[in-house]
Design a protein around this nucleic acid. Structure first.
Lengths: 227, 227
DNA sequence: CGCCCCCTTGAGGAGCTTCAAGAAGGGTGG
DNA sequence: CCACCCTTCTTGAAGCTCCTCAAGGGGGCG
């Protein structure tokens, strides 16, 4: 199977390279890989030799500090590029771990570099994507300490629903492939607090939640929490 | 006055450019500027057209979010380059505000680019500096939510003393040009909490504090707080 | 069927924030 | 040079949010 056949092409960097006929898809030599849940795709500190794209499934970026404490930096879902920030660094800033059965495409780094060198628009694209992600992560980190549990979880749910493009008519249904503990870690809260906060939203009729499946009834109201 | 005469040259990017005889110092056309306390040097969102170096005095980087909330991202002291992270972006991510009477040098961006193009070592230098700063800021932001007030302030004091190169024999004397409110904002705490935490350190004999002048008596013990 | 992990809910407690008031410095004008 | 004001810093008390510890329920997988 080549990139030309891939249904996710338009979200992927491949679209830029193919569309511009820089190279033929067969020449890409992209590594496709299939992963089970909780599998480590690459480790923090390893040399970066590819740009990853999530074809299906989902992954988390986990940062481990010198004390061994782990912090989830973000999640990536089907159709997303994994952590383009890292491209500016020589080594991976965090480990990548799958949340479920996942298919990944790995673009060798030399190919990306080539694309940057030969295609100014591609370079700009990567740069913009990197900048946007950097900015957002920055704001996320900043907001964590300022806001309460309700605000953080509301912002998280809205971010998830927007990224999965599931917003219709002030409501959305989405699936959260990560555990509550993952959400808690990401938001800087205790798992119990996340659970209680979900319950509060449920009591107010803002959401329906059954295990990993969430329905947001009133996005507007939920958005009021994250002023 | 030229860069060749500057006593702070060895900490500055100028040293690289001059040392390599890429250009003569007189051709640099560096803008020197003098600022009063609480003066805004550049504003968040403005196009980046120079790399700033703190010749004397000190500054803070202030980020303002869409709600108008302000968050101090960092401080820069005499002999430091201001926010090399921004070089990867087109616009300033934060505003720069002086804490006291301050002298700044501004290297036009085209000069820096030129340096990067012609001098691989310079490019690597800037990149490393940027990467180190990015990494540290990231860790700072991550640790804020994890640790308590004692830990954060201890880490802050140690960072300050290390950066001002004032560590001697397990003790250090340093000056904090920013207000307690600035420290509190930077650490994500209330000003009262910062004040109380200073008092706790004083009670334990770890530090002496009189206004902006701090003496750390036992760096080792202080460091135990920030495991 | 049973084990294990994940999620939920409760009670208690610690840490920080908020509100409030007072003390100390620095700057300005008389 | 002193008096005044304003900002900054400090300290106290009350309250709230979140964390920790603990127990129970439910679903998935062997």
């Amino acid at each position: 199977q080549t990139c030309c056949d891939c249904g996710k092409r338009k979200y992927c960097v491949a679209d830029y390279l193919i569309g511009k006929r820089l190279k033929n898809a067969e020449q890409f030599q992209i590594r496709n890989s299939s992963h089970r849940p909780d599998e480590t795709v690459f480790c923090q500190g390893q040399r970066i030799n590819a740009l990853f794209f999530v074809k299906s499934g989902s992954v988390k970026n986990v940062y481990t500090d010198e004390d061994g404490e782990q912090q989830i930096l973000g999640f990536h879902f089907s159709g997303e590029i994994v952590d383009p920030i890292s491209l500016q660094h020589a080594n991976h800033l965090s480990s990548l771990i799958t949340l479920e059965n996942t298919l990944l495409c790995a673009f060798p780094l030399h190919l990306v570099q080539e694309g940057c060198d030969k295609l100014p628009t591609f370079s700009v694209h990567i740069r913009n994507r990197s900048e946007a992600e950097s900015r957002q992560r920055h704001e996320t980190l900043l907001s964590i300490n300022r806001r309460g549990a309700l605000d953080r979880l509301a912002a998280f749910l809205l971010d998830m629903s927007l990224r999965q493009n599931l917003v219709h008519d002030n409501s959305a249904s989405l699936r959260l492939p990560m555990t509550r503990a993952d959400i808690a870690n990401y938001l800087g809260l205790a798992p119990e607090t996340v659970s209680r906060t979900f319950s509060k939203f449920k009591e107010q009729g803002l959401i329906l939640a059954q295990k990993k499946y969430i329905r947001i009834n009133d996005i507007e109201k939920l958005a009021h929490f994250c002023n």
